[in-house]
Design a protein around this nucleic acid. Sequence first.
DNA 1: CATGAATGAGACTTCATTCAT
DNA 2: AATGAATGAAGTCTCATTCAT
Lengths: 181, 181, 181, 181
Amino acid sequence: MKTESKVRRRILETTGQLFYRQGYQSTGINQIIAESGVAKASFYSHFPTKEDLCATYLKLESDAWFTILKRITLDEKNIDNKLDALFNHLIEFHAEHRFRGCAFLNIRAEVGSSSPKIAQEILTHKTRLLNFFHSLIPNEKKAKHIYVLYEAALMECQVFSANWPAEEAREFALEIIKLDH
Amino acid sequence: MKTESKVRRRILETTGQLFYRQGYQSTGINQIIAESGVAKASFYSHFPTKEDLCATYLKLESDAWFTILKRITLDEKNIDNKLDALFNHLIEFHAEHRFRGCAFLNIRAEVGSSSPKIAQEILTHKTRLLNFFHSLIPNEKKAKHIYVLYEAALMECQVFSANWPAEEAREFALEIIKLDH
Amino acid sequence: MKTESKVRRRILETTGQLFYRQGYQSTGINQIIAESGVAKASFYSHFPTKEDLCATYLKLESDAWFTILKRITLDEKNIDNKLDALFNHLIEFHAEHRFRGCAFLNIRAEVGSSSPKIAQEILTHKTRLLNFFHSLIPNEKKAKHIYVLYEAALMECQVFSANWPAEEAREFALEIIKLDH
Amino acid sequence: MKTESKVRRRILETTGQLFYRQGYQSTGINQIIAESGVAKASFYSHFPTKEDLCATYLKLESDAWFTILKRITLDEKNIDNKLDALFNHLIEFHAEHRFRGCAFLNIRAEVGSSSPKIAQEILTHKTRLLNFFHSLIPNEKKAKHIYVLYEAALMECQVFSANWPAEEAREFALEIIKLDH
DNA sequence: CATGAATGAGACTTCATTCAT
DNA sequence: AATGAATGAAGTCTCATTCAT
């Protein structure tokens, strides 16, 4: 297992905040370095390019995200409660982060296909998320449907700077579960 | 009626292509003016800031988008066919544009809340789109649900560089319509 | 006598305020045009270059300045009172204009010798001012001395953002007058 | 002790010449970096803004100026000779520099109050100069009077592109000293 | 492993001025 | 005499990255 240096950790913490709040393009390496309090060349010894930093950030972010998702669903007994917890978490998350939406979707929207490395990392995360919903919901179609509602909730809360999209999505998701096919 | 100058039209055409393909931040004014073949100061006499250009672009894009949406739904008799047409258009659109997703959502993801002017333009467009679905689907909950599926389809096709999210969303939408409440 | 058009007058009024408050270089033709409410080409039909505008402005400003200087000294009986009035006017002037100093000296400091036309206009004005002091004070040396004190007062009130330089200069000037040679 | 980099030194040398000859506004960063032979970003790593560059330049210029003033007055025995030396230095200085006047007063005239940082630097320098005259001349009023004559000489030699203002000021200053109060 | 000065290309924007109408 | 769209050079400043130490 790779030893994580203090420098590396500080960089990634700062990166996490800045990329999420400001976006990928709007966040300069210089700002990250300054706010991390590390030397420029130290930074580049850890992350050869900004793209690499972003890829690493996305990997960690994905892990952190799933740690949370698993935690909040593990305690719930039935699928209804699990879904409820997932969408409620979304609502709380947005309240805390001023509706900045999904770190992955936002960066995907920024970079388009210009960075395969980044696009791949996001694809991996979203595939993992889709599988996570599959693991909760046996019916494949329903799992996909609810995954899609979850994704939409992430985007639309940002667009409308409001929670209603997540609340509606939660309701739709619970209805979908109830359907008998 | 104000004559739209050739310069302005050329700028907006180029802007439309570049902002959509490359994103807002990754597209420089220099590239826009170079590819439009206009002088720098001519550009700035039309658009005081890049932000203003973006706002104008989004306004026009919204109009263009609704022109298409209305055209393709007008001929269809029933709601099923209308929805089918809408999601099919999405699929064709993505095929043509290499899954670059939604111009509005992408820019919203980039700018976050850093530009209220741009955020507002996008909010206006999406509100308009939500209302458009309301106008097609009397049941308010169903309209919202299907709007949300449409939005998700836009994002997810980009994320997966594939059409299946739009195809699934189309199927989900048609099911929703059939439900008897 | 040349007929002064309304446009010309508006331009010169705006110019006077802007050049004085912001300086020559910091004031753009565009701002002058915008705040005058005249068309760009109308402006250029009156003033072929910014330099010309400045020269004209300085000429008018010089006239305006002397109109005031003459008015405030005419009523005073003796030389002491005249000098008192001149320096008092300086103090009031600075109070009104937030210590922006002398329009002529300021522009002279900006353009250096790069614009002979402007430098000449300023030289003419200051020569006129020196002669004005000569006309009040028969003794040539004393006239020069007091002129120099007046000039210094103009600059130093700006530097110190305070009135004391003008007040001191007034006192020095009155002492000079009293000396018996 | 901090090593002053070569780049920084070259920038400040070039800046000194250009700001003095051409003025602050008329001198572009581009010209400074071109004539310094440094890279644009190197420049900005040393001086975050043009304003900061100017403030630093003024500080150094002030030091340089006082080094000279102290040197040329130190050797002189009495106050008459000291003042003579000071005004003679002014005359020589102007002869060498084509009557460009005082670096501080010129920039003060340009920027007005638009840059507090720069205005403060100039105020500091001039206060220092006033104190310098105080240190030479015990009588406070006389010190102020002669300071003011010195300042006027700086400006007026520029306005008239001639030495006579400094020569007259020297004469006036020596007279002031002789007065018995 | 750590440092920070240095880089060149490019960012967005404004300048004074001209031209066809 | 008046208009405002159009110009190209220049403005200040930031980018991601590399280098010698």
